[in-house]
Nucleic acid binder design. Structure first.
Lengths: 209, 209
DNA sequence: GTCTATACAGAGATAGAC
DNA sequence: GTCTATCTCTGTATAGAC
């Protein structure tokens, strides 16, 4: 039983890696088997068919760290941290693109986004909406507390989220060609600095001089 | 000869549409032929093989409107337009995601980004670098002219570009599920308003009241 | 230039021995 | 649970008639 579960996990992980690398359609059962060290036919002892592997991967995305940029903390517990919180979130995005496990998940998601409706539902609800909504609550609370200037919190959330996503995509793309990601990586921090500086309420004294 | 060119074009367009819809690997020569109204084997009178169609599509991307967000104008000719210029660029992104031709090109690009190195080169050089560099020249000139506050022009260019790309991706994704894109579409304008307001040099008088 | 026919390879999946 | 063997289907590509 333990050995079975071990093989199943190996199949799952090999499949995920290959799906992320070259896409679901382009990976064959034979390749997956080869990676695991078994014959292609043996996979069917663990998964009903190829699609069942894909489905299980998508099922597990919701439990992964790919989407958990808030580390399960609630907005009202953390909004007072102000800029430090934004730095922390921005750093989570950076970590996702550098950690081998989450970077694979991210690449898998982008690979299959247009080919799988369930994946798009996941992307929309768990990856995008959930985080942007949480972010907009954070910004709303910051406004109430007069930490940042009053404006549309949902817009702010989108404007903060979008560059982080984009820079993440850049990193993963650059890594696909084994190119340097150094310049792109600095943008996470610069974005947060720039963004916070633009939304925070400035002291009257220190406006320009 | 004219009829030949006509069929070739039909094949090209059917292939592009299908590649964008379900990916290169998942589209078959039979499907392409069916869309055109000929047998699969007849395609080989116009293209050497399946990959040749893909290559030709990628070759033509550089000539397409997908990347031409500046409408061939040089930064120094247009930077004085200030916010109006940013609005214009932002609107180009919006148009790309709504125009059937460019929206197909964009979806094709995102579909195959991780599966094709030549496409990644195109994305990086023509779609990303070229536009961001042009944008940073625009911002640099605006700074010199004291229209906007002095800061890193390249950062500004990235910060302006990233949300536009992200909102574009959102639209194309939503369209894939036949969902409403209304809310996402408003973000193009809101982004520009927000962004300009944050970078422009404010009159001392009209700071807060 | 398009058709039918066919070759050939690769893929997913199942059967049955061990 | 994994193996070999095999079935079946699908896909790319070519040959040759019209």
């Amino acid at each position: 039983m333990s050995k079975t579960a071990g093989t199943k996990k190996k199949i799952y992980e090999a499949a995920l890696r290959l799906f992320a690398l070259k896409g679901y359609k382009a990976t064959t059962m034979r390749e997956i088997g080869k990676e695991v060290g078994i014959r292609q036919s043996a996979i069917y002892n663990h998964f009903k068919n190829k699609e069942a592997i894909l489905d299980e991967i998508i099922d597990n995305l919701a439990k992964s760290n790919l989407i958990n940029i808030f580390e399960d903390k609630e907005p009202k517990e953390i909004y007072k941290k102000g800029k430090a919180l934004l730095k922390q979130i921005s750093n989570m995005f950076k970590l996702i693109s550098y950690n081998t496990e989450t970077d694979t998940l991210f690449r898998f998601m982008m690979q299959e986004l247009f080919n799988n409706e369930r994946l798009r539902v996941f992307y929309n609800e768990e990856f995008y909406q959930k985080n942007v909504k949480k972010l907009s609550v954070v910004f709303f609370l910051m406004m109430q507390d007069e930490m940042i200037e009053a404006t549309d919190p949902l817009l702010l959330a989108n404007e903060f989220f979008a560059p982080l996503f984009f820079y993440q995509l850049q990193i993963v793309r650059l890594k696909a060609d084994n190119k340097s990601t150094a310049a792109a990586a600095t943008l996470f921090e610069k974005h947060t600095d720039f963004f916070w500086d633009k939304i925070r309420i400035k002291e009257k004294n220190s406006t320009l001089f």
